[in-house]
Design a protein around this nucleic acid. Sequence first.
DNA 1: GTCTATACTTTGATAGAC
DNA 2: GTCTATCAAAGTATAGAC
Lengths: 202, 202
Amino acid sequence: MSARNRPARENGSERRAELLAIAGELFATRGFLATTVRDIADAAGILSGSLYHHFDSKEAMVDEILREFLDDQRQANAKIIEEAEDPRTALTELIKRSYAALRQHPAAIAIFQNEANYLAQFERFDYLPGVADEFEKTWLKVLQEGQKSGVFREDLNAKLTYRFIRDTVWTTVHWFNPSGKLSIKSIADQYINILCDGIVTR
Amino acid sequence: MSARNRPARENGSERRAELLAIAGELFATRGFLATTVRDIADAAGILSGSLYHHFDSKEAMVDEILREFLDDQRQANAKIIEEAEDPRTALTELIKRSYAALRQHPAAIAIFQNEANYLAQFERFDYLPGVADEFEKTWLKVLQEGQKSGVFREDLNAKLTYRFIRDTVWTTVHWFNPSGKLSIKSIADQYINILCDGIVTR
DNA sequence: GTCTATACTTTGATAGAC
DNA sequence: GTCTATCAAAGTATAGAC
């Protein structure tokens, strides 16, 4: 079946992608529940009923946004783990990659951060807890290997350390301003710096 | 006017406090919008209409929850700043205090974290951005004084450092489990440890 | 691909009896 | 302090014309 004849409902017409981006923006800034299908339609300059020509439901929209981002991130993580030569490099690369994602998928990250908990209650989003778990495993492995090899302090609780890192990195999406003074790169560098060496002078 | 004759609508009967706690729990775990007045009433074993004997609206409920917590935290911060003898002590005390609040006001913290952005759009919650600002000023002052006096590294962006700390500390509310293995104290200690000295061995 | 029109459901809130 | 009864508004979604 050619892309031309494929029904828009199934996937990618340009208009469809446009609508999805608009919806994502709104879900990210206002929240999923606070965004009505009329809000999305208004922002797109059409009427709410017209959205249903492209998507089955509001849930279907957010579902698609999340899947795309999560697949991307998962692949990127796997590649880093595979290629990194030592735990410290792996860790800093994971952090850099996460910050880079802030520029590529800001809406999806905000939605994942803010709504995963709520969405997980619906069957359709059964995959969410699994993905979060997989992410945790990836980071934990790096941290633990680093402890074994002696680059990371052994007295730290790896799970706790992972959570601290994750919280700091992802929550950045709530205040990061792409047109502000701080670049993603400088934020990432500074965080890696603090995380590795601490804020106290020696 | 005695407490006995004071209308429940105005403030503190026992039942009222109970209902507020139930609502707070739901707001915190499910989200403000996802929690209906019927959910709250169900959880309390009454009908939704009965809630309006105690509170003017759903918004009034969350408003009261937030104000109580924020006042508390503000006072605590002021006291720490006043009493701490040096920036490093002040910083660790601020962090410890924030973690301690996680035990005392878990629901309010989660709500503040998750819903402040949404709520700020309503006049009633005009005070929220101001409070966040005040918190930031308090922490910034400590960090900057520490940089001046040489305890904290001068090459760090204080504002950025504050955000890293704030995000890590407050976001803990999303995964902290009071009946889990990790105590609040051990989480706080470990975080202070990482923040000050980093995760890399030397 | 969008519009018109509209059905259906959920939700926050009110009035008055008990 | 709670219940019964009920509203009005807002929300998601559908059907069929254009």
